[in-house]
Design a protein around this nucleic acid. Structure first.
Lengths: 193, 193
DNA sequence: ATCGGAATCGGAATCCGGTTCCGGATCGAT
DNA sequence: ATCGATCCGGAACCGGATTCCGATTCCGAT
């Protein structure tokens, strides 16, 4: 999947592996810094390889962007587990999660684009995404138990919100923290319905 | 602004005017049908003109997309006035508005892209956008008076929501009506805090 | 340690789609 | 009907992603 050119079950050559991670590291840094405007030859140069090598490992620009994004998803998963799933009593796990994701998106110019793509597309989700989905499910359950989240909240709802969040952050304008607050409290007056 | 190539205060030639609207009509139809994948030569062909002519009237692809979108904004403004601002008592105007906008976005593949751009960018807003902003402001006031909307809701909040809505619809997946419902009710349980 | 060939590499060439250019056709005031 | 200002069409240009292929490098077998 991630290394689509490896013919079959053959172990990749050592230098190929090395180049792959160099490219990925360079891409990650550049995308974070300048987002979507980064060009393929530029990534190649930064990684110290030719453009052909970049394409050997990532068949398309989009694939490279996604691979770089997956590194971030792994970080987010990590955070969800270590910082949001603790003390289920509070029922604040999902809130912490969304704020953290917002912060990550805001700090990484290139990430929001692929988040939107990932959230929407029905492409076969990778291992990390699947795990993340599980973690979010637990966050929801905790919130329900703690009576801080509505009963009918679903994982897909959170996906939707994250997609929306990334879009808002991408526009640059608007205060994404405000959006999260609105999402929790709703548009109606606080005092009952 | 919309006719940037007209030198100064000189009235455009008749055929030029005709071609302009042909191009716009073709663009509108194609963008609605197939969204962002439509190419400039294709628009030209559909309009029965050369690519040069397209560019004479719309200096850039983006400009054409926006011009096509503005037609839709006008429709939305119309709807806001005739269907949402009626009977302020109900306080349901904003809800009606958002659902209508969602429907329009869902029916027009190309629109959501420019909505995102418009909502975000601080480009000088056109006449229609300004009017729309006013109308939305009134919708908010009505909802506040009717106690169906929170006191601190701002026009910029609604902009943010519309931007989010367009992003969600663009992904194709997910149910945008659900998003609107979530936005109104919030993630917390209905019963009090 | 060396050899042979498969796997990689690098970067020039290709492809694609937006944009620009300019000779020729049209419009419309006189 | 004439003439200059405008406008038209579509070929040429350009930037950036992607493909191709001869040169190079790795690594298992000898």
């Amino acid at each position: 999947m991630s290394t689509p050119s490896t013919p079959a079950g053959r172990k990749p050559r050592a230098d190929a592996e090395r180049n792959r991670s160099r490219v990925l590291a360079a891409a990650r840094a550049l995308f974070q810094e300048r987002g979507d405007e980064v060009q393929m030859p530029e990534v190649a140069r930064a990684a110290g390889v030719g453009t052909g090598t970049v394409y050997r490992h990532f068949p398309t620009r989009q694939a490279l962007v996604e691979a770089a994004a997956e590194l971030r998803f792994a970080e987010i998963l990590q955070f969800a587990r270590t910082d949001c799933l603790r003390d289920p009593e509070s029922g604040q796990g999902l809130a912490r999660y969304l704020r953290h994701v917002g912060q990550i998106l805001a700090d990484d110019q290139g990430l929001s684009a692929s988040v939107a793509a990932t959230v929407g597309s029905s492409a076969p989700r990778g291992e990390i995404l699947a795990q993340l989905e599980l973690a979010v499910g637990e966050l929801i359950d905790q919130g329900r138990s703690a009576r801080t989240l509505r009963e009918d909240l679903a994982v897909s709802d959170v996906y939707m919100l994250v997609g929306a969040l990334s879009a808002i952050i991408r526009t640059g304008s608007g205060d994404w923290r405000r959006f999260i607050d609105l999402a929790f409290d709703g548009l109606r007056p606080r005092t009952g319905n």
